[in-house]
Each structure stands twice: as C-alpha cells, then as structure tokens.
Design a protein around this nucleic acid. Structure first.
Lengths: 210, 210
DNA sequence: GTCTATAGGGGGATAGAC
DNA sequence: GTCTATCCCCCTATAGAC
C-alpha cells in the first residue's frame, strides 16, 4: 500500500491568490489608482471574495504594505547587526542583497516611496527604525572607527544615504535611464550587476574623503 | 496729473491661481489621489471654474507635469551643454543647482518618479532625452577623457546615475531618514547643504576608481 | 466559500443663472 | 468669468442565493 504524499499545491489558497494579485496591482499602480476590480481579476476570483477575506481595500493594502516594508528592512537589519562582519563587508553584503532583491522585484522601491509620502507615520508606527539603527552593531562599529584614528565620514546617516542612494536610485529612475540610453531591461539589469561589484569600492573611497 | 502705474498684482490671475493650487495638490498626493475639489478649494475658487479654464483634471495635470519636467531637466541640459566648464565643474554646478532647487521644492522628485511610473512614455514623448544627453558637450568631454589616458569610469550613464543618486535620493527617502534620525526639516536641509560640498569631491574620487 | 446583483457614495464634469 | 445645483459614472462594499 503506497503512502499518500500530500498533493503538491499547484493552486495556492484563495487568500494567497488575492494577496499575490494585490501585491502586483498595488506595486504597479499605487493605492489610489489601484481598483479592487483589477485585483479580483488578476487573482481570477470574484470581487465579493476580496471583501469576504480582507474586509476592505484599505485593510488589504495595509497587509501588503506591512509585509513589503518589513521584508525590505529586515534584510538590512540582519546585515547591520552581524557581529562577525566588518563595516566594509557590511556594505558589500547590503549592496549585493538589495541589488539581487530589486532585480527580482523592481517595483518595490518606487512603491514604498510613493506610498510613504501619503502616510509617513505608518512606517514609523510599524517599525522602530530609530532604535534599530542606533542600537545596531553597524552604528557601534562606525563610532569605534571614529574614535580610532581612522579617517571616515563622521555622520553615519551620510554613510547610509550614500550607500542606499547608489544602490536604489537607478531602479527608481529606471524609466528615465532607459529613455536616455535606449537599453532594454536585460541590459539595465546587467548594468546593475556591474554596480554590485563597484558600489562597495566606491563607498570605501568616498567615506575616507573627509 | 500722475501717471497711473500698473497696479501691483497682489492677486494673481484666476488661471494662475488654479495652476498654483494644482501644483501644490498634485505634488503632495499624486494624480490619482488628488481631487479636483481639493484643487478648487486650495485655489479659493469654485470647482466649475477649474473645468472652465482647463476642461478636465487630466489636461490640467498634463500642463503641470510638462512644466515640472521641463523645468527640472532644463537645468541639467544647460549645465551639460556649457562649453566653458570642465567635467569636474559640471558635477559641482549640477549638485549645487539641484540641491538648492529641491530644498525649495522638496516634493518634486517623488512626484516625478511616482507619476512617470504610471506613464513612462509621456516623458519621452515630450522630451528627447536620448538626443539631449548623447549630443551634449558633457558626453563629448566624457569621451575625450576616455580616449586620453585619464582613468575614468567608462560608462557615462554610471556617472550620471551616481551623481543624481547622491543628489536626489536623500530627498526621496526623506521620511525614512527623518524617522531614523529624529531630525527636523531644518536639520535635514543643513545636511543636504553639507552634501552640496561633498558630492563633487565624492564623484571625482569615485569615477577614477576603475 | 463563491457567486450575482445591487446598494451607496464619491468625484469629475456640465447646465444654466447671474 | 464665476457661481449653485445637479448629473452620472465608477468604484467600494454588502445582501443574499447557491
């Protein structure tokens, strides 16, 4: 008698289907322009089901937003709090992880930025960013470097802005960049992979320029 | 008999009032979330007048968008095509002009990015970005530098992405940055003014890192 | 759980008086 | 040119059958 293995889930649950569809539509259009009808159609279900599972467009959106944000920020927290890596290695890891992530989900940065604009407090209510950064291993390492004789930019915020700007900005400006250069998405991604190697080098040289 | 001077225009024309209000509301909320009623109220006029002057929300938006974009990009074109300045001086001018501009109009970068996402073609229809950049003095100077022995990043796109990323990204991520650091807008702007000095130095060192 | 049908409200646009 | 009043469509949300 053969043991009956659990059937491989080809179709995900309805709830998951709706969430996936919501992600797609919200990422592309933003909250205000997204229609629940779009989401229902994308999910291949009826509009009423959306409200059955999630009560309202807004509640569904909040779930997607929260998951997206924490997924995005969690990746940085892990790196910033790694005791076994140097500052240099941390920039390398962050650049590498984020560029790979954003190549897979290119709409996320613009989505986050657009939506936070409409509700800046949401972010801070959900995630204690200030504490996270200020209590991080990264922050302590940066202070140690300052206290020592190392020449380094004194403001850790400038450090993080430079790093994230070099990583994220090209993806945000992708339509402009593709318009200027005429390259396609594949070539664009190739450029981003080149940046993955260069950004840690650049950051290293930048941050020693007092 | 005293010559009657043209009266100082304290109140601008109705058309201009509506446009100013539209800029304010569209910049803050984006096209989809902005309501024509908001704009009318902001302008201190009746909703019907908005349609009387501009026919539709969409037409009004297109006017604002076109003016914003060309104003934003024109500033770069002027610098990129200046025959009298070196590459180095150009980075200095661009950083300086844009940081000053965005401090005055901090919502513009996020506005442009959010709206272009919904209609990437609009931008390219209105402005021949590719020609502008490729035929610019900047582009020729960059090629000259490559042909000579100067060690310089070979891709002018990477150059522009780094420059604009270092300039614009902090403004885009401003809600995050203020959340992390707890600083207010004034202190934030002060940091941006510090960057104004640093960015040309950073770019110079970055771009020589092959 | 999933559907069809519809209520309910908001927002863009216009008619028509002044 | 500017206003009030109103139309009407579209979108979210729900009632109710299956």
């Amino acid at each position: 008698m053969t043991v009956k293995k659990p059937k491989v889930e080809i179709d995900t649950s309805t709830e998951e289907k709706i969430k996936n569809a919501a992600r797609t539509v919200f990422y592309k259009k933003g909250y205000a322009a997204a229609r629940t009808r779009d989401i229902a159609e994308e999910a291949g279900i009826n509009l009423a089901l959306l409200n059955y599972y999630f009560r309202s467009k807004e509640k569904l959106f909040n779930i997607i937003m929260t998951e997206t944000l924490s997924g995005f920020i969690q990746r940085m927290i892990v790196v910033l709090n790694d005791e076994t890596t140097t500052l240099e290695k941390k920039t390398e890891l962050i650049a590498s992880k984020y560029i790979d992530l954003i190549i897979k989900e290119p709409e996320v940065p613009t989505f986050i930025i657009s939506e936070i604009r409409n509700n800046p407090d949401m972010l801070l209510e959900k995630i204690p960013l200030k504490e996270i950064v200020n209590k991080s291993i990264f922050f302590k390492q940066h202070q140690k470097a300052l206290e020592g004789n190392e020449s380094i930019e004194s403001n850790p915020l400038q450090f993080l802005m430079n790093l994230m700007g070099l990583i994220v900005f090209p993806f945000i400006a992708k339509p402009l960049i593709m318009g200027i250069s005429g390259i396609n998405t594949e070539a664009f991604n190739q450029m981003m992979l080149e940046r993955k190697k260069m950004i840690p080098v650049w950051i290293k040289t930048i941050m020693k320029t007092k």
